[in-house]
């Protein structure tokens, strides 16, 4: 068991939360785009929500050079690793990951529909429509402002709260429900998963196909086959349970040819051998 990796991830998630709430120091909004989904309307936010900003840039018709540069930099570094290691809402997903069920398939592509819908809605209505239903905004802005006595229980608040409750329920029923199916930031970062420096590597010669990694995966993947999946958050849970050290989390360019075909072939041989 790689306890050290788990500890490092918790510390990293702590840093994510710290950056998200750094406004407690009194500094105002900075120019940093947050590498995850974190509402800039949060009273303690000092960073910019990438999805909120993207909608505004669509509304204003700005060619998003700065946004693209930042997102690509994040993507190259870790891809969806930020979901597993840094995003505060991802951390909440983690904390509520009680049922690591395997429901992926075509449903996991729904986050791309959310992303495209977010952009189209911003363009069509010239408004940040996603923000009005974003559960992160509900948790980090609407509720705090209610307790600060600034917001009131009105229709926008109830809409936020309703979505938040539904998403939280989804997280309890299906581990990392939001990250799997709905997160538009996860959809963007997932595009970089197969080239990001932070990635999983599989040594098929060491894999015993025991399936322990699949049981541990909060995204419902089978890491021995889908170690480069667009859904993988690089959380490393699979590496901590792998007694054979077949799967490892590494930080390097993925320049070698894909070895995806190898485990698939081996899996077939394994299945044949087992029958």
């Amino acid at each position: 068991m790689n306890v050290r990796l788990s500890l490092m991830r918790r510390i990293s998630q702590g840093f994510g939360l710290l950056l998200g709430l750094f406004g407690f120091t009194g500094i105002g909004m900075t120019h940093i785009i947050f590498p995850g989904l974190h509402c800039y309307a949060c009273p303690l936010a000092v960073t910019i929500c990438p999805i909120g900003l993207a909608q505004n840039l669509v509304i204003y018709g700005t060619v998003p050079y700065f946004w693209v540069a930042t997102i690509v930099a994040y993507g190259i570094l870790a891809g969806r690793g930020f979901c597993g290691w840094f995003c505060p809402f991802g951390t909440l997903n983690d904390l509520l990951s009680f049922r690591k069920v395997r429901i992926n398939g075509i449903a996991s592509y729904s986050k791309y529909a959310v992303l495209i819908g977010t952009i189209i809605a911003a363009w069509m209505f010239a408004d940040t429509m996603f923000c009005k239903v974003c559960p992160v905004g509900g948790l980090e802005a609407s509720i705090p402002y209610l307790f600060l006595g600034v917001a009131s229980v009105n229709r926008p608040f109830l809409l936020h709260l309703g979505v938040l409750v539904a998403v939280l329920a989804g997280m309890v029923i299906i581990s990392r429900f939001w990250c799997r199916y709905l997160c538009p930031m996860g959809a963007i970062l997932s595009l970089f998963n197969r080239i990001s420096f932070l990635h999983l590597t599989l040594n098929p010669n060491r894999c015993s196909w025991c399936g322990d990694c699949a049981k541990a995966c909060p995204m419902g993947l089978q890491p021995q086959e889908e170690y480069d999946s667009h859904n993988c958050t690089k959380c490393g849970e699979c590496t901590t349970v792998c007694t054979m050290d077949a799967i490892q989390l590494t930080f390097s360019p993925q320049v070698e040819r894909s070895r995806r075909v190898i485990p698939l072939l081996l899996n077939r041989e394994h299945d044949q051998g087992g029958s």
Binding site: T30, A41, I48, G52, Y65, G137, R155
Partner: peptide, 25 residues
């Protein structure tokens, strides 16, 4: 190019304005 076009300040400006209708204010 983004910094030349002052896009970081644009982003900061966008994030500094609270979307009041979003949070029920």
């Amino acid at each position: 190019y983004g910094i030349k076009l002052r896009q970081p300040e644009q982003a900061q400006g966008i994030a500094s304005v609270l979307c009041t209708s979003c949070v029920g204010i």
